[in-house]
Computed example of a mutant assay.
Amino acid sequence: MSDDKITHFGYSQVPVQDKAARVRAVFDSVADRYDLMNDLMSLGIHRLWKRHAIELAGVRRGQRVLDLAAGTGDLTERFARIVGAEGEVISSDINAAMLSRGRERLTDLGLVGNLDYVLANAETLPFASDSFDCVTIAFGLRNVTHKQLAINEMFRVLRPGGRALILEFSHPTLQPLRRVYDLYSFTVLPNLGRVIVNDSESYRYLAESIRMHPDQETLRAMMEEGGFERCDYFNMTGGVVAIHRGYKL
């Protein structure tokens, strides 16, 4: 099989057309306890990472925001409160179970009226060009089959003057931290998955997908290739996570 017809699923090689379905299966498996697992895996630090991303997004009242790979809606929730009744937030995910879980959660919180939910693949967004003031994707880009296509689409749907934020696991900048991080990722995470959701393989895939994700400089170059300007990134927790930001000028 030629290289353009295969891609990585964690450390495995799979046909390109199969990856999206495999990713859906992973998140179907973990959807019901996704929030609990996030808290356990990161010791709650993921909330601080997301809070910083929201601050860097600079969203204001009345704006229109697209939250890709929205999952259970952590970023969507905060954006909906910021933009108010005059604005709009679209919560989008490729996985129906995750999108449904997010809708239930945000509805229970009383967030209705300025929210909509769209099942969509980030590589082919069903939105008009120049539609949003801000586009975000948190912990989702590494699961996309063709990452450059998703970045290109984020640029396309942004209005001039808009900005994109990519919050994602990245590459630790300190060698001692890398060793500890590897031990944690490939030993602790699968065991947590086995105990909490009876699924160690999905969390082994998540650990592997992080290692296959582009490093900080490579991802910045991909954003520039997609048309973004003034691209920068912010390492957090020693580079375990990075926030990339770019503007459509």
Results as ranks from 00 to 15, higher is better:
Ile82Lys: 09
Ile82Leu: 14
Val83Pro: 03
Val83Ala: 05
Val83Lys: 04
Gly84Arg: 10
Ala85Ser: 15
Ala85Ile: 04
Ala85Tyr: 05
Glu86Ala: 13
Glu86Lys: 13
Glu86Ile: 00
Glu86Asp: 14
Glu86Arg: 14
Gly87Arg: 12
Glu88Thr: 15
Glu88Phe: 10
Glu88Ile: 13
Val89Gln: 12
Val89Leu: 13
Ile90Cys: 12
Ile90His: 10
Ser91Ala: 15
Ser92Arg: 03
Ser92Leu: 03
Ser92His: 03
Asp93Arg: 02
Ile94Lys: 07
Ile94His: 06
Ile94Cys: 11
Asn95Lys: 09
Asn95Cys: 15
Asn95Ala: 12
Ala96Phe: 08
Ala97Asn: 15
Met98Phe: 06
Met98Trp: 06
Leu99Val: 08
Leu99Met: 08
Leu99Asp: 06
Gly102Trp: 02
Arg103Tyr: 04
Arg103His: 10
Glu104Cys: 10
Arg105Thr: 07
Arg105Gly: 13
Leu106Ser: 06
Thr107Tyr: 06
Asp108His: 15
Leu109Thr: 01
Leu109Arg: 15
Gly110Pro: 09
Gly110His: 07
Leu111Tyr: 07
Val112Glu: 14
Val112Arg: 14
Gly113Val: 12
Gly113Asp: 12
Gly113Phe: 04
Asn114Ile: 09
Asn114His: 10
Asn114Ala: 12
Leu115Arg: 08
Asp116Ser: 15
Val118Asn: 11
Ala120Leu: 09
Ala120Trp: 01
Ala120Asp: 14
Ala120Met: 11
Asn121Ile: 02
Asn121Ala: 11
Asn121Tyr: 07
Ala122Phe: 05
Ala122Asn: 07
Ala122Lys: 05
Glu123Pro: 00
Leu125Lys: 12
Pro126Leu: 09
Pro126Ser: 09
Pro126Ile: 08
Phe127Asn: 08
Phe127Arg: 05
Phe127Thr: 12
Ser129Glu: 10
Ser129Cys: 11
Asp130Lys: 03
Asp130Trp: 00
Ser131Gly: 11
Ser131His: 07
Phe132Ser: 09
Asp133Val: 06
Cys134Trp: 00
Thr136Ala: 07
Thr136Val: 06
Thr136Tyr: 01
Thr136His: 05
Thr136Gly: 06
Ile137Val: 14
Ile137Asp: 03
Ile137Met: 13
Ile137Gly: 02
Ala138Tyr: 03
Ala138Leu: 04
Ala138Thr: 05
Phe139Val: 05
Gly140Leu: 05
Arg142Lys: 12
Arg142Glu: 01
Asn143Tyr: 02
Thr145Leu: 01
Thr145Arg: 02
Thr145Ser: 10
His146Asp: 15
Lys147Tyr: 00
Lys147Asn: 04
Gln148Arg: 12
Gln148Ser: 12
Leu149Ala: 15
Leu149Arg: 15
Ala150Arg: 08
Ile151Trp: 00
Ile151Arg: 01
Ile151Gln: 06
Asn152Glu: 14
Asn152Tyr: 00
Met154Glu: 00
Phe155Gln: 02
Phe155Asn: 10
Arg156Asp: 09
Val157Met: 05
Val157Trp: 01
Val157Gln: 06
Leu158Ala: 06
Leu158Tyr: 03
Arg159Asp: 00
Pro160Glu: 00
Pro160His: 04
Gly162Asp: 02
Gly162Asn: 02
Arg163Leu: 01
Arg163Pro: 00
Arg163Ile: 07
Ala164His: 00
Ala164Cys: 10
Ala164Asn: 01
Leu165Gly: 04
Ile166Arg: 01
Ile166Ala: 05
Ile166Glu: 03
Leu167Glu: 02
Leu167Tyr: 04
Glu168Asp: 14
Phe169Met: 10
Phe169Ser: 04
Phe169Arg: 02
Phe169Gly: 02
